[in-house]
Amino acid sequence: MTYRVRIENADGEVVTIEISADELREKGLTLEELLPPNARIVEVEEVEP
């Protein structure tokens, strides 16, 4: 499974990243732990691999 994640950074700019569930598991991280300081998740969407 892959996630498309929209993130708002500290400057108010919204960027989109895609990350797979396998990648998260391998790194032992959650989506929140990948965020840079002062950023927030705006939207998470599951996409087909």
Rank of each mutant, 00 (worst) to 15 (best):
E23Q: 09
E46V: 15
E13H: 10
E43A: 14
R6N: 04
E43P: 01
P37W: 03
L29C: 10
T2F: 15
G28A: 05
V5N: 00
V15Y: 15
E46M: 15
P36G: 13
E26P: 02
V44A: 02
G28S: 05
N9Q: 12
T30Q: 07
T2M: 14
R40F: 08
E46C: 13
R6S: 13
R4G: 00
A21G: 09
I41D: 01
V14W: 09
E26N: 10
E23P: 01
E8A: 08
E46Y: 14
E26M: 12
V5I: 13
Y3M: 08
V15S: 11
S20A: 08
A39Y: 13
E33I: 05
E46R: 13
I41G: 01
A10L: 10
L31W: 06
V47G: 04
P49W: 11
A21Q: 08
R25Q: 08
E43Y: 14
V42I: 15
M1N: 09
E8D: 02
S20M: 06
I17L: 10
L24C: 04
E18F: 15
I7G: 01
R25V: 08
G28E: 04
D22L: 11
T30R: 10
Y3G: 02
V15I: 14
E46N: 07
E8H: 06
V42E: 02
K27A: 08
A10E: 13
A10D: 11
D22R: 11
R25T: 08
I19T: 02
D22V: 10
E32F: 08
P36E: 06
E13P: 01
E8T: 08
T16F: 11
P36K: 03
R4N: 04
V14G: 03
E18Q: 07
P37Y: 04
V47M: 11
P49K: 12
A39H: 10
E32Y: 10
P37E: 08
A21H: 07
A39T: 14
E48F: 15
E13Y: 09
G28W: 03
E13A: 09
E18D: 07
M1T: 13
D22A: 14
I17W: 10
R25W: 09
T2N: 14
R40W: 12
S20N: 08
E43G: 13
P36Q: 04
V15C: 14
N9K: 15
E48S: 13
V15D: 05
S20C: 04
L35W: 03
E45A: 08
N38Y: 13
P37H: 08
D11W: 12
R25A: 09
L34R: 03
T16D: 05
Y3A: 03
G12R: 02
E32G: 08
Y3E: 10
I17D: 00
G12H: 04
R40D: 01
L24D: 00
V42W: 05
D22Q: 13
A10V: 10
R6E: 05
A10S: 11
L34H: 04
P37K: 09
E46T: 13
R4M: 07
R40C: 07
I7F: 15
P36V: 03
E33S: 11
E45Y: 11
K27V: 05
A21S: 10
E26Y: 08
L29W: 07
I17R: 02
L35V: 09
I19A: 01
E18H: 11
R25C: 09
R6Q: 11
L29P: 02
L34F: 14
V14Y: 13
E13R: 13
L31N: 00
P37F: 06
V14M: 12
R6H: 14
T2C: 10
L24H: 01
D22Y: 09
A39R: 04
E33T: 05
I17E: 00
I19P: 00
V47F: 12
K27E: 03
E8I: 15
T16W: 14
K27L: 12
G12W: 01
V14I: 15
S20P: 06
E45C: 10
E45Q: 12
I17K: 01
E26G: 06
I19F: 08
A10H: 07
T30P: 07
D11E: 11
A21L: 10
E32H: 10
T16C: 12
S20K: 08
V42C: 07
E32I: 12
M1C: 14
E23I: 09
T30N: 06
I7H: 02
R40T: 06
R25N: 09
A39S: 14
R6F: 11
Y3W: 11
L31E: 00
V14D: 03
T2H: 15
V42S: 02
E8L: 14
I17N: 00
T30D: 04
E33Q: 14
R40L: 05
L34W: 15
E33H: 07
E23K: 06
E33N: 08
N9R: 13
N9D: 06
V47K: 05
Y3V: 15
V5G: 00
E13Q: 13
P37C: 05
P49A: 13
L31M: 06
E18K: 04
G28K: 07
D22S: 12
E45K: 10
M1G: 10
L31H: 00
N9W: 12
M1Y: 09
V14C: 11
L31K: 01
V5M: 04
P36I: 03
R25I: 11
P36D: 04
R40V: 09
T2E: 05
V47H: 06
I19V: 09
Y3K: 07
E8P: 00
L24K: 01
T2L: 15
P49R: 13
R4C: 04
E32V: 10
L34Q: 02
D22T: 11
P36W: 07
E48R: 14
G12K: 03
V42R: 04
P49C: 12
N38R: 07
I7M: 07
P36H: 04
T30I: 05
V15A: 06
L31S: 00
P37Q: 08
E32P: 07
V14K: 05
P49I: 14
E32R: 07
E33F: 05
L31R: 00
V5C: 05
S20T: 12
V44E: 01
E33A: 11
L29G: 04
P37V: 07
Y3P: 09
V15K: 06
G28M: 06
E8Y: 10
I19Y: 05
E32C: 11
E45G: 04
L24A: 02
A10K: 08
G28N: 09
K27R: 13
R25E: 07
V44P: 01
E33Y: 04
V5W: 01
L35R: 02
V42A: 02
K27G: 06
I41Y: 03
G12N: 03
A39K: 04
T16I: 14
R6V: 14
I7K: 00
L24F: 04
R6M: 13
D11I: 07
R6L: 13
A10I: 09
V47T: 05
R6D: 03
I41L: 06
L29V: 11
V47D: 03
V42T: 03
E13M: 12
A39N: 04
L29D: 01
T16V: 15
E26I: 12
V44R: 02
T30F: 04
E46K: 11
